[in-house]
């Protein structure tokens, strides 16, 4: 391949890649457009009129329940999950900087959580809770289910981050008499801060969108994905799309804020 001139394979692959991006975003854009119809809109194209009627309707009381409540639950849960995920995976990442007895067992235990089919996690936690006579709730059993999904990802990312980490800084701090805690907060944490935001975002979104591992164990009050899933069977108006549009925009904003923060933190670090 020539540096000045791109080859045919480049253009073919670029075209393929563009189609892939279209495949990912196309349906989403269609849903955005259809959520902006006037009140006589339907579930399919062509668009009928233009208004914010359906977007506003999301905030009203729905036939199947209130989405604002479900959103509140999902949001709270995602914040808790993100916090726990960050703390636990940073701790585990710190431990895994060196080999220790049992480290490979713990490693495989963590990875296996990704491989176990999700429905088993849901079913198993459900059975466990019923055996010990605890009611399943979104903030207890579903929280446990989500952690089995977010922690392995966060753990793998932390392993990657710490493997690229230069231990000389820490050793210097320790040589100068800094305690373990001081070394962590003054030296290690600022260096991994950007990645920690990334892991937090991942934990948040994985939890906020989780369905299968929540499905059997959310208890009486649904999380947002469960609420929306229930809605698909009996709602045939664009309010379905409006809800989809709003939650997707929420995800986009969140990702944007997190990326911006990460950029900011890593830039401050290189200064």
């Amino acid at each position: 391949m020539n540096k000045s001139k791109k080859s045919i394979s480049y253009y073919l692959l670029a075209a393929f890649f563009s189609l892939f991006v279209l495949f990912l975003y196309g349906p989403m854009l269609g849903m955005f457009l259809l959520s902006l119809q006037s009140p006589e809109g339907t579930l399919t194209f062509p668009m009928r009129g233009f208004s914010f009627y359906w977007l506003q309707s999301v905030f009203g009381e729905q036939r199947v329940g209130s989405f604002v409540d479900a959103f509140g639950r999902s949001f709270t849960l995602a914040i808790i999950i993100a916090s726990i995920t960050v703390v636990f995976s940073v701790l585990a990442g710190l431990a895994f900087r060196k080999q220790f007895k049992g480290s490979s067992t713990i490693f495989y235990l963590t990875i296996s959580s990704l491989i176990v089919p999700s429905i088993l996690v849901s079913l198993g936690i459900g059975i466990l809770f019923s055996l010990i006579n605890l009611p399943v709730q979104w903030f207890s059993s579903a929280l446990a289910g989500h952690l089995t999904w977010t922690l392995p990802f966060a753990f793998l990312i932390m392993l990657g981050i710490f493997s690229r980490f230069n231990p000389a800084y820490e050793e210097a701090a320790r040589d100068l008499g800094a305690s373990e805690t001081t070394t962590f907060w003054e030296i290690v944490f600022p260096l991994i801060a950007a990645s920690v935001v990334g892991v937090g975002l991942l934990g948040f979104t994985l939890s906020y969108d989780e369905f299968t591992r929540t499905s059997l164990i959310s208890g009486a009050s649904n999380t947002l994905p469960l609420e929306i899933f229930g809605m698909t069977t009996n709602v045939t108006s664009p309010s379905l799309y409006a809800l989809g549009t709003l939650t997707t925009i929420f995800s986009f904003v969140l990702i944007g804020v997190a990326l911006f923060t990460m950029q900011f933190l890593s830039r401050r670090q290189t200064k």
Binding site: T44, T247, F252
Partner: peptide, 29 residues
């Protein structure tokens, strides 16, 4: 480009399924 590929996977699976309805339905695109 990698981020652009990743962003949809950080949004809801259920919503992404629903988004196919206007395309695949009986009167779909």
């Amino acid at each position: 480009w990698f981020l652009i590929c990743t962003v949809p996977f950080l949004t809801s699976n259920i919503i992404r399924m629903i988004a196919w309805i206007p395309f695949l339905g009986r009167e779909g695109l």
